[in-house]
Each structure stands twice: as structure tokens, then as C-alpha cells.
Nucleic acid binder design. Structure first.
Lengths: 135, 135
DNA sequence: CTGTATCCTCTAAGATACTG
DNA sequence: CAGTATCTTAGAGGATACAG
């Protein structure tokens, strides 16, 4: 059976997407673009913090998201987790060396964003305004 | 009427999240973490390209995603769009100066990812293996 | 060729309740 | 205190068809 041009194109899409998943830069981007990752890393900049400290410092995160964010960071070796067995339990989180090296890039992104926020906002405003005029 | 501790906490969450939306660094991160943004920017590194060129160079993107990615980049002033009115129409896309400055950061992320991909992979493997042993 | 419009699916993430 | 489990929902993104 022959494939239509559209079917062939979609087969290529699937393959390309599959290989993208393996791209390390892509994986990094996906890892840090999760909503809370950067906030957790920035909070941990000064040193080690407990789960409840982080919850206070990042009040927007639900407990579930905070836990899963920390798990993901731990899995990638960006954050280390220390459990003190007592009642009640105590867990501390801390950036690893790798985590700190990534934090440097996060800061650069922050700098770029601050330097360009006005320009981007102006551009958006103009774009949206023009669109409105035509519709 | 009084609020429970949980209700208070969630009110704070909403407020915090609302203010997060306004954070320029957050907006940047959201802008570039969209699946295809970095790929389009990298494709445009060498110069101006047509819509169909981009489709060929990034075969994984559906037409819809490519268009909406380009629209978003255009709105933020990272890419400019030139339409040549003819039959059929021809549109060219090109990075703006702002787009090129952001591309520098994308490259730094790429470098970090390449330098750390092995370490991250090893960390993931260890993490997942240990988990398996305990379950 | 370069898009828009529609429908549809699947996953991220919030709400809530519970455990060691 | 720290974490898990379940339910639900909003939205991102894919498939498909059509238009200027």
C-alpha cells in the first residue's frame, strides 16, 4: 500500500520528534521550564532549606507541585535531599555543584529578561494594537 | 465568615501566582520553553527563511505549531516577518537584534546541556535504579 | 504557498483527603 | 512535618479540512 504525501510527512514528524526527545539541550530546557524549577533553585541559592521553608518562600506552589519539582531536581542531580529520621521527620534540600552551575544560566536569563522586558512589552502592545485595528 | 487555614493559604497562592505572571524573567522562560521556539530561532541563525524552508528544517512541527510559534516570536519582537504580495504569497522570517541577543543565551544553555548530559543521565539512572530496588 | 478554523485527545497541575 | 493517592479540569498541541 502506498502512502499519501501527508502520511509520509507525519511519519517523518514522529521520527523527528522521537529523536528530539533524546537531545540533551531539549531535555534541559524541558527540565527547567517546568513552572517551579527556577523558583526552587533561586530559593536554594543561599543554602540548605527544609520542605516547609520552601513552601513558605514559594507560596504559589501546591504541596504536590513542590514535592514533584524537588523529586525531579533530585533525579537530575541538581538538588540533594537529606532526611533526618526523627518524629516528626525532617528533610533538607540543597543545591549540588551541578545545580549551582545551572543556576548561573538561570541568572543570565533573568538578566536578559530584565534588560529586555520594556522592549518586549512595547512590541507586544504594538502587535496587539495593530491586530485590533484590523479586526 | 472566617476562613480555614487551607483557604487562606490558597488565597495567598492565587495572589502569588498572579504576581508571578508579571515577572519578566518568568515570561521569558515561558516564551522560550514552548516546544518549538528554540528550534526556530536556531534555524534562523544563518539568515532569513521562508515558511516552507522552516517546515523542511524542522519536520517535527505541525503547520499549526510552526505558525503559532512564529506569531509569538513576532509579537515579542524576536523575529520579523516580511510578506511579498504575489501569487502565490511569499513570507520571509528573520531574527531581529533582540532575537539574536536571546539566541546567545540559548547557545549557553545548549553548551551547559552538552557538558552535563552524561552526569545527568548517570544521576537519573542511579535514581531510577534505586527506586526500583525498593519497590 | 501561507495561513485559518475546527475538532479532539492527552497531559500538567490544582483540590482534597489521607498516612507514617 | 513530609509525603502519597485520587479525582478533576484547563489548556497545549495534533489531525484534518478549507481559504486567499
Amino acid at each position: 500500500m502506498t502512502l499519501t504525501a501527508e502520511q509520509k510527512r507525519q511519519a517523518v514528524q514522529k521520527q523527528y520528534n522521537a529523536s528530539l526527545e533524546l537531545c540533551p539541550a531539549r531535555q534541559l530546557l524541558e527540565a527547567i521550564s517546568s513552572k517551579w524549577v527556577t523558583l526552587v533553585m533561586l530559593a536554594l541559592e543561599e543554602g540548605q532549606l527544609r520542605h516547609s521553608d520552601l513552601r513558605r518562600m514559594i507560596p504559589g506552589a501546591s504541596q504536590k507541585m513542590l514535592t514533584s519539582t524537588l523529586r525531579s531536581l533530585e533525579r537530575d542531580g541538581l538538588v540533594s535531599r537529606h532526611v533526618t529520621v526523627s518524629v516528626p521527620v525532617r528533610t533538607d534540600y540543597e543545591l549540588t555543584a551541578r545545580g549551582r552551575s545551572l543556576l548561573r544560566i538561570v541568572f543570565e536569563m533573568k538578566d536578559w529578561a530584565e534588560q529586555n522586558m520594556d522592549g518586549v512589552a512595547a512590541s507586544r502592545l504594538e502587535h496587539d494594537t495593530n491586530r485590533y485595528l484590523h479586526v
